[in-house]
């Protein structure tokens, strides 16, 4: 092979493989049973209860809610989900699948901006205009790179999860570990965990509430349980800020659970804790 031919061959092969690989992975993401794939392909119509949160929102345990209420649910929570990304996903849900009757939002997703996670959602940017717009606005480099390399679009944990849920439901996942004894003992010794509202995320929350209510959804704001001796700083102020900005009551369940056996770590109830939390939400009438 002539010296220059092989480099042309390399560029061509790299390009063709990238496009072909991208196409196959796109098909996989479309076939997946992962919640975002289902939203994008319009498979989450007739949802009664929409659950929105970060990793703490994953304790909205769908099988328990469905058993308690007899209503259908969709949980769009994700580890570290920021409100602006949640809003883009909610927009997709409203556009492609219609209006849920009730939406529950764990307001702690206003504590962080998470550009890294928004970049991770590049796998869905091809089928979601709101996600593509957010990606372009928040991380233009990743947006451009994912246009150059189609394989790069699927370089993320979000895609790996979509692959994992290719042929199985993601609706019954819950944290199934118990907090370690060392963590229990250390809880009171740690520096207080500061809860602070990110203004950009608060605006996204306001807009999401407005868009949901405009579409006819009843929105409830909640704060899920924290480990009892885990020191939180600024929770009351945080709740007040959200209440005053959104003109809605925040239902505070942060002190609901007191047993270490109900927690996976400081910020996340496990299976046992989650079941109690769901019962409390139901008793409060937040699923109605």
């Amino acid at each position: 092979m002539k010296n220059s031919y092989w480099i042309i061959g390399l560029v061509l092969l790299a390009f063709i493989g990238d496009r072909l690989g991208g196409m196959i992975l796109q098909k996989l993401i479309e076939r997946s049973q992962f919640r975002y794939s289902r939203i994008e392909k319009g498979a989450t119509k007739n949802v009664d209860i929409l659950l929105i949160g970060n990793s703490r929102g994953l304790t909205f345990y769908q099988p328990a809610i469905e058993k308690l209420t007899g209503k259908s649910t969709l949980n769009i929570s994700y580890n570290g989900l920021p409100m602006n990304l949640a809003r883009a996903i909610v927009q997709d849900q409203l556009q492609k699948n219609g209006t849920p009757k009730v939406a529950l939002i764990d307001i702690t997703l206003c504590t962080k901006s998470n550009q890294e996670l928004i970049s991770s959602f590049k796998a869905y940017a091809t089928c979601s205009q709101p996600i593509a717009d957010l990606l372009r606005q928040q991380d233009v480099k990743t947006y451009r790179a994912s246009r150059v390399s189609h394989l790069y679009r699927y370089n993320s944990e979000v895609f790996q999860r979509a692959l994992f849920y290719l042929n199985q439901s993601d609706e019954d996942w819950l944290l199934d570990r118990t907090i370690t004894q060392a963590m229990v003992e250390n809880a009171a010794l740690l520096e207080p965990y500061q809860l602070k509202v990110k203004p950009q995320q608060l605006v996204a929350l306001q807009k999401t509430i407005w868009e949901l209510e405009e579409a006819g959804t009843e929105v409830h704001l909640v704060v899920g349980p924290y480990f009892p001796t885990f020191r939180l700083a600024g929770l009351e102020e945080y709740i007040q800020q959200v209440e005053s900005a959104c003109q809605k009551e925040v239902h505070d369940f942060s002190n609901l659970l007191s047993e270490p056996a109900h927690f996976g770590d400081y910020q996340h109830p496990n299976v046992a804790g989650s079941l109690l939390y769901m019962e409390a939400l139901d008793q409060e009438g937040l699923f109605d």
Binding site: M1, Y5, W6, G9, L10, L13, A14, G17, D18, G21, S149, L151, Y152, Y154, N155
Partner: peptide
Amino acid sequence: RPVFRVVAMALVLWLIAFFG
């Protein structure tokens, strides 16, 4: 082997794009 060279390098490029 030029063909092996091209395929191996393209493979590494794909791996970098997918896992990098």
